[in-house]
Nucleic acid binder design. Sequence first.
DNA 1: TATTGTTATACTCTATAACTATA
DNA 2: TATAGTTATAGAGTATAACAATA
Lengths: 151, 151
Amino acid sequence: MQTETTKKLSPSLAASPGYLLNKAARMLRDNVTEALKPVGLAPAELGILRVVQEEGSPMQSVIADKCFLDRTTVTELLDGLEERKLVVRESSKADRRCKTIRLTPLGRRILVRGARAATRAQQDFFRIVTTDEWETIRHVLVRFIEAASPD
Amino acid sequence: MQTETTKKLSPSLAASPGYLLNKAARMLRDNVTEALKPVGLAPAELGILRVVQEEGSPMQSVIADKCFLDRTTVTELLDGLEERKLVVRESSKADRRCKTIRLTPLGRRILVRGARAATRAQQDFFRIVTTDEWETIRHVLVRFIEAASPD
DNA sequence: TATTGTTATACTCTATAACTATA
DNA sequence: TATAGTTATAGAGTATAACAATA
């Protein structure tokens, strides 16, 4: 991607939620990915750290649930985080199939730095969105995501 | 992904534009991808057909521009579309570096069918969004995408 | 020297299937 | 038999780099 000088979208693409959501999401994610590089985190890793903190030492399947990710993806992401000593896995005594994830002090520090970097990276987005608009978008997307039905 | 029975998002994820946009975009795209399968198109291919029709036999670099895709990606996608006889490439007489893309009659029919299928697939989304909300979202996303600055 | 398109290659994100170990 | 986590593998989507032909 090189020539990106305020181009105009085609009308039919500009009318498609799928297209718009995708393109905007990717752009935003590229920003966040870039901003997280110095912190040493990928966007999905930051998401996991956030959920681990919020849930307070959840088991892996809870993380998968909260992040809407497959448990195999969570395993893989946790491998990286554990290797870098940001989290520790602990086998539950009650049910030895389960592993509980806990933030290390380092993990906590990296989480703070990552969250700050991510917020900064999203300023590009917030610059062009009013608070009201953002609240509308937020509510719609949350509704849509949470309404996702199984089969 | 298996357990997706109206779960709740974590507060910190529900507050992140990057996260929400990404997740919603992926969900929507999965729907569209599924709906386009019987038509034999991928979402990006439908986008290209749309732009080809709107622009009226554009050269490849224009397609890349309008779709916000790399030209190598466009080359690859066109290879598939040409193979299936949905478009034809024609070397421009004026500038023999350029290739002009034209829809075949078959391509036109598939475009119509694809557009219909994609619209249907996005009803899940529109079911939970009011017209006003959608207009707000649409404008914000278009603004954001078009404002993407180079360096 | 710059631009159009092509080729070969590689990367990110995420999932499916089959497995192990419990329960 | 069902569940938690792991492993190996694969696929979609898109990009970068180097190149050929032409301008």
